[in-house]
């Protein structure tokens, strides 16, 4: 089969352009981090198979973390690659809990910031991809045991911080990604469309 070189060039360029258009958000949104269309939060996870570790979590919190990861697997196209007994180089999410006071220089009880922190997520290994999009190779999730009093709040917070770790930002919708004392422990259809659109 033969094809003119010019036609081939146009076909490849068109495919590349289509790919670029799909990869570039039209407006800022609450998923992922693209340097020229930044959102409040967060670099998306760098691969579809998510490996995690929570080997030092307290028993109640690891149950909630298990729930959160299973929910992520159930609700989205991301797949739980597995649980790593120890955090290795390919571990994507590492979870910790403690009664934090000023860990990482943060004001966990809110006496300065005005936010009593229940959980925090930080991408500690950021990857810059071509086209200005950042992804996250390793995120750390921390839960303040002083606030993890019930199953509901543990699950909600696990769902929320895992959401940040994979790239979701806050929302007004009925979702665990809502800020404050919401009790929802699952992602909204809007959250899912963000995640599944990327994977």
């Amino acid at each position: 089969m033969r094809m003119s070189a010019l036609a081939l060039v146009f076909a490849v360029v068109a495919a590349l352009s289509a790919g670029l258009a799909a990869a570039t958000p039209v407006v800022a949104n609450t998923f992922g981090f693209f340097v020229y269309h930044p959102t409040w939060c967060c670099p998306k996870t760098d691969n579809r198979d998510v490996y995690w570790n929570g080997s030092t979590l307290t028993s109640n919190m690891i149950t909630a973390a298990d729930y959160g990861m299973a929910n992520l697997d159930y609700q989205t196209d991301l797949r739980i690659g597995g649980y790593d007994d120890t955090a290795g180089t390919h571990t994507d999410l590492v979870m910790f809990d403690a009664r934090y006071v000023d860990y990482w220089g943060k004001d966990w009880d809110g006496s300065s910031t005005g936010v009593n922190i229940t959980g925090a997520t930080k991408c500690v290994r950021v990857l810059a991809q071509i086209g200005g999009e950042y992804t996250c190779d390793r995120a750390e999730l921390r839960f303040d045991l002083a606030d993890m009093n019930t199953t509901t709040i543990r699950r909600k917070t696990a769902c929320h911080e895992i959401g940040h770790a994979i790239g979701l930002g806050h929302t007004n919708l009925t979702s665990c990604m809502k800020q404050g004392s919401s009790t929802t422990q699952t992602y909204s259809s809007h959250d899912r469309s963000h995640v599944n659109g990327a994977w």
Binding site: W40, C42, G110, G119, S181
Partner: peptide, 16 residues
């Protein structure tokens, strides 16, 4: 914009 975006995210309840 550079300073704000991509920082860590802390979640909780507002105290004021």
């Amino acid at each position: 914009a550079q300073l704000r975006y991509g920082a860590s995210v802390s979640d909780g309840e507002y105290l004021f």
